[in-house]
Amino acid sequence: MIALRPLHRLGRQLVIFFGAGIAAAIAHYGLLIGLVEWAGAHPVPATLAGYVAGGIISYALNRKHTYESVRPHREATWRFTVVALVGFLLTWGFMHAFVEWLDAPYLPAQLVTTGIVMLWSFIAHRTWTFA
């Protein structure tokens, strides 16, 4: 039974991370769709703006609820920023490839990109940012 505790904790973190991700995704996708559909923005810069908005929500929710981190903000914020910057670059790279090179519709492209970046973010935050 003792060996199951780390798995239980990991499962709990994944569920809470997913919930925080939904809140961040609502901000991200809301801004993305609003900028593309109503402001006529190009999908790649629009998704990057959405990524930043979602990132702010993600930091607050994940620090407190997912990882229950006691790491001081002065340490956690710069680490979160480094992980977010990598995620930002991954978002740009995948969205650019999907939308520009493969001519994919921007919302399905964003869904795939979100999955990739969420996996990266969970692992990096769990092992480094909030560890």
Rank of each mutant, 00 (worst) to 15 (best):
W120Y: 10
Y106Q: 02
A3K: 13
V44H: 06
T114E: 03
V83G: 07
M1G: 13
H8D: 09
L89T: 10
L61M: 14
R74Q: 09
F18G: 14
W92G: 02
I22D: 04
K64L: 07
W38E: 08
A76Y: 00
I33V: 12
A60Y: 13
F88L: 09
A41E: 09
H42I: 02
T81I: 14
H73Q: 11
A109G: 13
S58W: 00
A20L: 08
I26K: 02
T114K: 06
I33W: 07
S121V: 04
A24V: 10
E37T: 07
G115S: 08
S121Y: 00
F17E: 11
M1A: 14
R126A: 11
V15F: 12
A109N: 03
H8A: 14
F94G: 07
I22S: 12
G34V: 08
V36C: 06
D103F: 11
S121D: 01
F17V: 11
T81C: 15
L102M: 14
L107N: 05
T129P: 06
I123A: 09
T113S: 02
L35D: 07
F94N: 10
A109F: 05
I26Y: 02
Y29E: 08
F18L: 13
L31Y: 00
A41Q: 12
L48P: 03
G34D: 05
I16C: 00
L7R: 04
A53Q: 07
I56L: 14
V117E: 09
L10D: 01
T77E: 14
T129N: 06
Y51P: 03
R126K: 13
E68G: 15
Y29I: 00
W38C: 05
G93H: 09
A131W: 01
P45D: 09
A76S: 15
M1T: 13
H8Y: 10
P105L: 12
Y59L: 13
E68R: 15
L102I: 10
V117N: 10
H28C: 04
A131T: 06
V117F: 08
R63D: 01
V15N: 03
A23I: 11
F94W: 09
A3C: 10
A97S: 10
G11E: 03
R12L: 12
L61N: 06
R5I: 15
K64Y: 03
Q110W: 07
W120A: 06
T66S: 00
Q13K: 10
V36G: 05
I2R: 15
L102A: 15
H65C: 02
M118H: 08
G19N: 04
S121W: 00
A46M: 08
H125G: 00
V86P: 04
A49I: 15
R5K: 14
I22A: 13
T113F: 06
E37L: 02
T66N: 01
A53H: 04
A53K: 04
G30H: 05
P45K: 10
I2K: 15
T113E: 02
V70M: 09
S69Y: 06
A46T: 04
G87F: 08
E100L: 13
A27C: 12
H42F: 04
A104C: 11
Y106C: 08
